[in-house]
Amino acid sequence: MSAPLLQVESLAVRLQTAQGERAVVDDLSFAIDAGETLALVGESGSGKSQTALALMGLSARGARLGGRMLFDGEDLLSASAERRRQLRGPAMAMVFQDPMSSLNPYLSVGLQLAEVLETHRGATRGQALAEAECALDAVGLSAPRTRLAQYPHELSGGMRQRVMIAMAMLARPRLLIADEPTTALDPTVQRQILRLLERLRREQRMALLFITHDLGLVAEHCERVLVMYAGQVVESGATAQLLRRPRHPYTAALLNARPGAGTRPGTPLAALPGQPPDPRQMPPGCRFEPRCALRQADCRDPGLLWQSDAQGSRGWRCRHPLASRG
């Protein structure tokens, strides 16, 4: 078995805040193979975006990172800032949630695309613009040459997200992180964007880390899932298995809370009763325990460990997992 493209071991992210340091990601481990699609699911605030930014090397100033991140065998946390910058683009790229604010309103679309190739391949402006035009065509934008001269405010939300995707794909990244890329878009555009990502991933054998809070999208598009809660992964496994037979009560609660039993796209995680824990007072044991309908006396005890099945393909962070068949 060859080594995965990206291997993350016990990643921890601590951010500086006015009230002191705050752990937003804790003991997070996973791996992605080349060409694979992995979903990262969780409620808002569970640490999905902070995980993505840590992978990209874009954590806020003053952030402290722990654990290990290996990209193609290279240790990212010990790499220099300059080396991390060189990796952003050709090795890993990111598409952000809000296409409205993620493009620079002061610069033309053409320049914002061309500079990727100028930076990473030393292309001239002319070459870069020609290639940018092809890239816009590949993401399904009409009249790509005209678009190059336009500014973001002249484009619709869906068009901007296509530009963002074209931009991320320009340097042919081996891993694309898409952080809720369709949340800000209307449902028809959502589907088009997802199909586009799927097609590009297949054509370029690119790995995709797909961040979402929409379980329906996960079921349709992703081979494996990580479920995050309060900065930790609480369950991981192959999508079909995990959705059909969740082991962690949080995953089960998410599935039950969904209106209707099916896993259709467009049905976001419904609100569970209660609130995620205050990060300043994390429960010492299971972080879901205060909201868990199945909690038992020992759930509060510290020292809760990650468990996995015999093949190591499924895992959960729970002392009393749901039965594997039932």
């Binding site: 493009l103 610069l107 500079e115």
Partner: peptide, 26 residues
Amino acid sequence: QAPYIRTARAKGLPERLVIWRHAMRP
């Protein structure tokens, strides 16, 4: 702090370009 500056950094632009091209106009 703007999101489009984060995008510029996510593209791997050198800090010189991030500041003088992406942040200077505003």
